[in-house]
Design a binder for these strands. Structure first.
Ligand SMILES: [Mn+2]
Ligand SMILES: [Mn+2]
Ligand SMILES: [Mn+2]
Ligand SMILES: [Mn+2]
Lengths: 227, 227
DNA sequence: AATAATTTTTAGTCTTGACTAAATATTGTT
DNA sequence: AACAATATTTAGTCAAGACTAAAAATTATT
């Protein structure tokens, strides 16, 4: 009894989750992505990763040599980017059309990203007005898998009296996002650095015409676009 | 009092597909649903059905006694209705918002119906304006699992000179639906029976101000609301 | 360079959900 | 009632994808 015998290349939900994890890890690591890194990201065991990595390698989605970590092939990268594309488009849908807040979308998008339908994703993109970024400020890959990366800087890198527009987050856990909401920090807001404290790396900022003290942890998880 | 009503139980995609199949079969059969009937509907083997049916019985979703067929429990029926609800709401979404035609929605809805999120389905319902029927004229269960069934009759049961509004189909395969499209037969259209042929049970109808000859097969797969 | 610590892989097991083939129960027909 | 046909269940396999424990390779430390 097989479901989904329709589309050309079909990967399981599990395979897709691995691909996506490797894709994200590759962006930051720039070297081969290690077994342990994948295991940590997916909250699974290293031995399970080894199994899956061998399978993905068979399918020519990744390059894998024992003990050497993995790299996405062009095909694998394109496939992964498409999953990320779907994830982020669905996040936009949930926020823009279904009144979800930015801290509620992740788990649902994690499921929706695996729906197989070329037409669905094309039409969704069009329905949403071809958005370029998701609710967390992350760029949405185009239908060829290309990412248009904008220059953005961590808030912690701004100097005193510099200012920028809030354009993204690193940590998109609902705890962090709700914390930002509570502080009135949302995408699009202007932030000006009033003071930088050396002893704890906290930052004093101006936002919403109010002065706010921001811990180092927050400042290193918030992206701004300098101006 | 235990947590039964409180904890949201989660079922696998496969379990949900079985539940839905049994739900649909129960509507027409009114007796216990047989192993073979389920196997046929899901295009699987009877032995696989027996396995799953034993599991669903363990979970108190169905009543099962060996060789006796199965019946949904109240809990099982509610669960199944909720899956049907999601399926049909997604079908409406695809047609109303994403330019799908009624013959293209089924496979995608088959996947979307398994997405787990209470909020998602509530918001979707509201976003769609609380639709009562899906694109094939099938009623959408409410959030308690209740079906509001309207009276409708097969086109084949209309007498000469009777007329009705086209409100649904039995067969919703894309072949049949595309055939209806080609003939200009869509939901909401008025149909008047001009002539009934005894020798082949075909029907001559008036639709879109044009006379059309309809085979018996079509006439027994089209629902109309008499007027 | 040798040893210790860490990472990664292998071997073996488990669960889910499918399958085939064989056994058993039910139903239909003479 | 006996037998044949059909339906259903059981027993035994298999693949995917997880796990644990143990082995092997790599990396770090003395
Ligand atoms: Mn996912
Ligand atoms: Mn996001
Ligand atoms: Mn389904
Ligand atoms: Mn439908």
């Amino acid at each position: 009894m097989y479901l989904c015998g329709i589309i050309k290349e079909m990967f399981s939900q599990s395979e897709e989750n691995y691909l996506k994890a490797i894709y994200h890890l590759e962006i930051v690591s720039s070297k081969g992505v290690t077994t342990n890194a994948i295991a940590k990201k997916l909250e699974t065991k290293a031995s399970s990763v080894t199994d899956m990595v061998q399978k993905l390698s068979e399918k020519e989605l990744i390059i894998y040599k024992k003990y050497q970590g993995v790299t996405l092939t062009v095909f694998g990268k394109k496939t992964a980017a498409n999953i990320v594309r779907k994830h982020r488009l669905w996040e936009v849908f949930l926020v823009e059309k279904l009144n979800f807040s930015w801290d509620e979308v992740h788990d649902v998008a994690e499921q929706l990203e695996h729906i197989k339908s070329q037409k669905l994703i094309q039409e969704l993109d069009s329905f949403l007005g071809f958005p370029t970024h998701d609710p967390h400020g992350d760029p949405i890959p185009d239908d060829k898998g290309n990412l248009k990366t904008i220059e953005k800087s961590l808030l912690s890198t701004l100097a005193k009296n510099e200012s920028g527009i809030c354009v993204g987050v690193i940590d998109s856990s609902s705890e962090f996002l709700q914390f930002l909401d509570k502080k009135g920090i949302t995408l699009g807001k202007q932030i000006t650095v009033l003071e930088k404290e050396d002893f704890d790396d906290s930052v004093s900022i101006l936002i919403n015409d109010k002065k706010l003290s921001i811990s180092q942890k927050i400042a290193t998880n918030l992206f701004v676009k300098k101006r």
